[in-house]
Design a protein around this nucleic acid. Sequence first.
DNA 1: TTGAAAAACTAATGTCATTAGTTTATATTG
DNA 2: CAATATAAACTAATGACATTAGTTTTTCAA
Lengths: 192, 192
Amino acid sequence: MSPRVGLDTKTIVSAAAQIADEFGIEEVTLAALAAKLGVRSPSLYNHISGLQSLRTQLAIYGLEQLYEMMSEAAKGANGSTAVHAMGLAYVNFSRSHPGLYETTLRAPEGQNAELAAISDKILSLIILVLQVYHLGEEGTIHAVRGLRSILHGFASLEHKGGFGMPLDSNVSLSRLIDTFIAGIGRMNSEGE
Amino acid sequence: MSPRVGLDTKTIVSAAAQIADEFGIEEVTLAALAAKLGVRSPSLYNHISGLQSLRTQLAIYGLEQLYEMMSEAAKGANGSTAVHAMGLAYVNFSRSHPGLYETTLRAPEGQNAELAAISDKILSLIILVLQVYHLGEEGTIHAVRGLRSILHGFASLEHKGGFGMPLDSNVSLSRLIDTFIAGIGRMNSEGE
DNA sequence: TTGAAAAACTAATGTCATTAGTTTATATTG
DNA sequence: CAATATAAACTAATGACATTAGTTTTTCAA
């Protein structure tokens, strides 16, 4: 009712994340967002520069949270324990924030410095966790690509409902990570 | 100019796939599609029942092509050779048809029988290729989930541009699949 | 207290999907 | 071959949305 609602960018992004998680990212419209915040759509432009920009902010917001979860999980652990913990944290983030997780992967990344920074931070964390395996420069790059593929692929297919059968998917994930870790040594010794 | 253009569903879906691959799936609008086909938007409704339905058809169209590529690649091969060939075919499909591949993963799948059928067909193919490893019922399910996660995750991140560094991504993929195959035996022996 | 800046607003435009109702070409049937 | 039914195109209209322009109003600082 009051002409000053007191919005700010963070409130808007957070509300958008809620919509994304609850109803799916296709429901994240400025119209829905404005309604949720008790405001008219154009008012949002005082704080964000449009839907595209909002999506970028959402991706940053999501990656920051994802980094926190992964980082916290890996902290103190070593080797395979750390990889498992970090991987589970990744997937659990995608489970508890399906919409926000999805926005994370739809951003151009090329343009925005903040987005590139948080992406790099996650990359560095993964590299750090894989450091104990002494894979060398190239080996590390291959391994990072592999682990990210596993985690994103798993999270994405699980969310999509692709794992139709009623068999504990945490076991599937754990085994997949085991497989990956076991294979890392092979990469190291036999890679050209 | 002629009042009968001679559209049919297949032509429409195929044109939509072209738009998806060339400009991205967010550009697949009925307006753009109609323009490409030399027709007004409402005319499309004589052949499809709306945008949602078109997306489902696109997913089916994509999965059919994906199945063909995977199936053709795996044909005649065995064991790890077949897994590698099939995996590369999967990723190559996503490379040559990025938009169409993406539609493949955005469909509800619950509702449409045809979509469920072609999905099952791909699932069966993967199971068949993994059969030589004698993983048992549960082991097979875990392995299928793992392989699909790897392939989809890799394809998705590669398309997104997530593999920033200039290092041959086919090598990354090949190593990842090697890792997976090596680990499959472990799954078999040590799984509870 | 006054004035400037920020944050809300209304109004308007353009794009899109979709529906309703109309025209026209083609194919079937007598 | 003619008449008619059907299917495929069309125009017109509606409603959702993002976005821009221009206006009002609140707040804060001088």
